[in-house]
Design a protein around this nucleic acid. Sequence first.
DNA 1: CGTTTGGTTGATAGGAATCAACTTCAGTGG
DNA 2: CCACTGAAGTTGATTCCTATCAACCAAACG
Lengths: 229, 229
Amino acid sequence: MRDEEIAAIRELALFASMDEKNFDELVQGSYLQIFPPGLQLISEGDPADFLHIVIEGCVELVATANKRETTLFMIEPVKTFILAAVLKDDVYLMSARTAIRSRILLVPADAVRQVMAKDGEFALGMLHELANYYRVSVRTLKNQKLRTGVERLANYLITLDTLQGASGVCKLPHDKRTLASYLGMTPENLSRAFGTLAQYGVEVSGRKISLSNLEDLTVLAKPEKLIDG
Amino acid sequence: MRDEEIAAIRELALFASMDEKNFDELVQGSYLQIFPPGLQLISEGDPADFLHIVIEGCVELVATANKRETTLFMIEPVKTFILAAVLKDDVYLMSARTAIRSRILLVPADAVRQVMAKDGEFALGMLHELANYYRVSVRTLKNQKLRTGVERLANYLITLDTLQGASGVCKLPHDKRTLASYLGMTPENLSRAFGTLAQYGVEVSGRKISLSNLEDLTVLAKPEKLIDG
DNA sequence: CGTTTGGTTGATAGGAATCAACTTCAGTGG
DNA sequence: CCACTGAAGTTGATTCCTATCAACCAAACG
């Protein structure tokens, strides 16, 4: 790993206030690797051997059962994933694959656990990271249990537009199949949901979305701070 | 709080290995209280002022949106709840109410955060507790997104029977309205789901359930270690 | 070019919510 | 003791949401 990359990683909230020596110990055994899109990084059920950190790109966390598959989370830079499995020294509950070409830092799980035990600052950093993930997961669960598909899409679009500058024009970060899976619906239903939203000023052209009637859309979506953030 | 109660709390995995002085500091400002059934302990959106620990009884974590309500988790002794909100010094994402008469320990949030910062053992305890909750939340999400209502009920019953001794006879720990909300369906639909399961050997009499054909039920339910534990 | 991949549309069926009526049962009070 | 009450649970009819299967379209790519 290059010095400048190490320095960049050091800046992350997770590592910022930890001891220099402990940081070195973590980085020592780590690998920074580039993966092509669509590559399976982790399979659910496997033991957790590395803590993964997305430095660049995007990773999709998916789960399978009953011959069905669903996307649970999309992880964007700079964030860890499968932290809980590493921490509990247990198997992964989700599979992970790159959504696009991605640079990922792999930190050996036992190193993480060892450093965590002796570096309080690092443990606190982990605690905050994990608390964030827990809250995201709860929000996701509420989104899923309390809203219909159309409502989830509407809220997704409003949030997306806000994140991209609230200009009323935004661009989907993933293909629609992935989005459908993330929103808990089939691609066919996502397509119909976009159709339904047309009468609320949502125009779709490929991945480009324009929201020309945010008021009506918001009435339909009923966004909630405790779900959408 | 009585000495024997303090001693019992000290035994919890969360506190077991922490420093005596720090434990005292935590317990000092805490209250142990008994609440009647159905009492609202916490409202979603409120700032987190106390870490709650169920010593005895049962607490239901619910969330509301769109004039709908759903039960996200049931917390049984001895477990904490709303840990993440306390940790992040943020608002609660869920409301909490007692399902039955319950004894609950209330630990001031700022004390928790202070002790956490200086007691590495306690921080590690928290980290494990939180990691457990995260994984429960992910399992719940998978259960919700990958299964139908009848499948969720079937798996719930199989797990319940296992927990209660795998005798083929078990007893629902909550009323059916609560169970329906927890399983993400309406009471009417839960009733029908029980009806559907009759042909798989599920007999219902009030809260008493008997599973006379576990093989067929299991074929329908398709339990997964990575969802049902 | 044709072939693939991603996306859309239509028809149909299945899963789940809603509304309304009815039953059961526990608790209350006459 | 029994009738009343209210809550919990069930059942039926209907509507709505969602998945499935199939066909079709279109941009992307060798």
